[in-house]
Design a protein around this nucleic acid. Structure first.
Lengths: 129, 129
DNA sequence: TTGATTCCAGTACAGTCGTACGTGTATCTT
DNA sequence: AAGATACACGTACGACTGTACTGGAATCAA
């Protein structure tokens, strides 16, 4: 697993879109940006280029158009990023973040119940080990 | 609520210690750093100075020593930071992060049970509204 | 075919970050 | 009192970020 330099905030936004659309052109990514996130076309271009430099993407020139593909797996990046956050903001413990998420961010009833089931399932698994 | 520039990663580590120890001197913060996080004394100093510039801390000179105090509330900063992460890495939805936390980061049995109770309590509250 | 338009690749540039050094002054040790 | 320590403060500096403009090639409109 190659150790890649961490993603910056802007890069992360673009990376996420790339995971969802890979392989994609710059324009496709730019178009896929949700409206509140207005970013210049060339800004997206720059991020994609940097993503490639950092090893998170690769690209080929197809005719006159460059096609970018995600290289790093989303799950791995998510893990690295979250681990990082938890360590810096909570000194490494996960619970404060969980509590925060459940209490401070609006979680719908359905989601709550999904969570509960997830937890119950995990508890059961553990007991039977 | 003053809009402060976001904290960088390094600043966050120091900010967290400041919340726990405020008011504190540079040295106190530096000493409080957990061992794997080795940071030069003057690096901590710089972060504290920047924290003040950004409006997250204030300081007074007490004799020859500068005493720093946390200004922004931890909860607010946590919220801003987490909101930011969720929006950039998950496009705004909280659930993927929850799932990730529960499944990928080791959560102890006790914690699981605490979580379950937290959820159950929330569900109950909602139902009685 | 000529000006207008579209798009990619490269370049730019100020601001932030991580990380610390040097200098001056105050305090401790002998 | 003279050297050793400790600390505050200013300064430094390359790397990374956010954000985009520019130049040139290809495409469209008339």
């Amino acid at each position: 697993m190659a150790k890649r330099p961490a993603l910056s905030k802007g890069e992360m936004v673009v990376a996420r879109l790339l995971w969802d659309h890979s392989p994609a052109t710059v324009r496709q990514i730019h178009t896929a940006l949700p409206s509140p996130q207005d970013m210049d076309f060339s800004t997206v271009q720059t991020y994609l280029r940097r993503l490639e430099t950092k090893g998170y993407a690769s690209s080929v020139l197809q005719g006159k158009t460059r096609i970018y593909s995600a290289k790093a797996k989303a799950a791995a990046v998510v893990k690295a990023t979250v681990d990082e956050l938890v360590s810096r903001l909570f000194g490494g413990s996960t619970m404060p973040l969980m509590r925060h998420l459940i209490e401070e961010r609006s979680v719908s009833a359905d989601e709550l119940s999904e969570l509960r089931q997830l937890i119950e399932r995990l508890e059961k698994e553990r007991n039977s080990e």
